[in-house]
Simulated assay, not measured.
Amino acid sequence: MAEIVLFLAIKKIGIALAKGVADQASVQFLKYGTQLLELQSTMGRVASELRVIHDVLCQMDTRNRNNQVYEGWLEEVQKVAHVMEDMVDEYLYLAGQEHDIGCCFFLKKGVKKPRSLLSFNRLAFKVKETEKHLTHLSEIKNRWVTLINNGDTNSSNYIVKRSQDLANISRSLDEEDLVGVDENREKLEHWLAGDDLGCSVIALLGMGGLGKTTLAANVYNKVREKFQCHAWVSISQTYSREDVLRNIIKDVFKDDVSVLSSTMAMDIVCLEEKLKKFLEKQKYLIILDDVWTPEAFDDLSRVVTHNDKGSRLIITTREGHVAALASPGHILTLAALPEDKAWDLFCKKSLSKRYK
């Protein structure tokens, strides 16, 4: 996802501008004193611009991803981020930091270093040109990229379908596709199997692309049969409360055709009542995937009954104020993979198909 691409570029620039690297660069580029300060300032400005774009993407309505013009613009931004990462790697290499910077893992994994390094002046020029390119892209967005936010039916349908597609992909990943989730998976399984007979609300918190849905799905598939009934629903930023209720009912009553038939003509009030009465007597596990607002959680939690049977409700979200709705001590915050795990995942995904 674009958020991850920008996040990694921002992180790498931050490493390059850290004091230890800056001190080493001052020694290596002693004769370029003024130019070095300007280069570092330029990298800082690029990082600031990327950080703002990243934060906007994290908050932006999913429907904008259906805008072809916007998608083209975002691709260009990602290209800039990749180019900037390459130049920061070059800067770190020239500064003699290739063995000390964890982020530059590929320089330590047997990949050949560049045969010809850019001169300092050439590097500074290219970073400056990258800043200009990024500024130009911002201007293009303001002039031409219309972010769709009118709530029309087509956009809403797209959002729901897109969210469901992404959730289905994450839920279908095999065990061998997962990397670096053992600790989080163990903790989540422990919470689900805990002795608390109340309805524990568990939150998986993290930015888009960190694997919240994948982790939840992996554990859900393992433990759901330990509950009397279970359901998985994708919420997203735009959702139909009635559709969500019907999807939960479809899951929890999956073996009862007569009940499913009787609910087809029910309005939303009757659906809520039907579901609530059923869940009162069940030990249930329900996943609310991709919850964006506390209001969305409140809307759907009305049917969730605290019935002292050890039921569990898991929400995945990228919003801290939504995760705060979880039971005390039941927020699992996902972070980017450490270097070694990221490398393992890269090799697994990029090399497995090649050698099949």
Score class of each variant (00 low, 15 high):
Val69Tyr: 04
Val46Gln: 02
Lys11Asp: 14
Val27Gln: 06
Leu39Glu: 07
Leu39Ile: 10
Gln35Asp: 15
Val80Asp: 10
Glu75Asn: 11
Asn67Gln: 07
Ile15Arg: 11
His54Val: 04
Trp73Ile: 12
Glu85Pro: 00
Gln68Gly: 07
Leu50Gln: 03
Gln35Met: 13
Val21Ala: 03
Val69Trp: 01
Arg51Asn: 12
Gly33Pro: 01
Arg51Asp: 13
Gly20Gln: 12
Gly20Glu: 12
Gln35Trp: 06
Ile53Phe: 10
Leu57His: 01
Val52Ala: 09
Val27Glu: 11
Asp55Glu: 15
Tyr32Asp: 08
Trp73Cys: 04
Gly14His: 10
His54Met: 02
Gly14Tyr: 07
Met84Trp: 05
Glu75Asp: 11
Ala18Trp: 03
Trp73Gly: 06
Val80Ser: 06
Gln68Ala: 14
Arg45Leu: 09
His54Ile: 01
Ala22Phe: 00
Ala47Glu: 04
Gly72Thr: 04
Ala47Tyr: 05
Asp23Cys: 00
Leu50Gly: 03
Cys58Gln: 13
Ala18Asp: 15
Met43Val: 02
Arg65His: 06
Asp86Trp: 04
Leu17Phe: 07
Gly44Pro: 05
Gln78Lys: 14
Asp55His: 09
His82Thr: 05
Leu37Val: 14
Asp89Met: 01
Lys11Pro: 00
Thr34Glu: 14
Asp23Phe: 02
Met43Ile: 09
Gln28Thr: 06
Glu85Ala: 01
Val21Leu: 00
Glu38Gly: 01
Ser48Val: 03
Glu75Trp: 04
Lys12Phe: 07
Gly33Glu: 14
Val77Tyr: 00
Leu36Asn: 04
Glu71Trp: 06
Lys31Glu: 07
Val83Gly: 06
Gln35Glu: 15
Lys19His: 11
Ala47Met: 02
Arg63Val: 15
Met60Glu: 13
Met84Asn: 05
Val52Ile: 13
Asn64Pro: 06
Asp61Asn: 13
His82Gly: 09
Lys19Ser: 15
Tyr70Arg: 11
Arg63Cys: 14
Phe29Leu: 13
Phe29Tyr: 13
Gln28Phe: 06
Lys12Gly: 00
Leu36His: 10
Glu38Leu: 15
Glu75Gln: 12
Leu50Phe: 03
Ala47Arg: 07
Ala25His: 03
Asn67Asp: 12
Val77Pro: 07
Gln24Met: 03
Leu17Pro: 11
Leu36Gln: 05
Leu36Thr: 03
Ala22Trp: 00
Gly72Tyr: 11
Leu74Phe: 11
Leu50Ser: 03
Met60Trp: 02
Val52Asp: 04
Thr34Gly: 06
Asp86Val: 00
Leu74Pro: 04
Gln35Arg: 13
Gly33His: 15
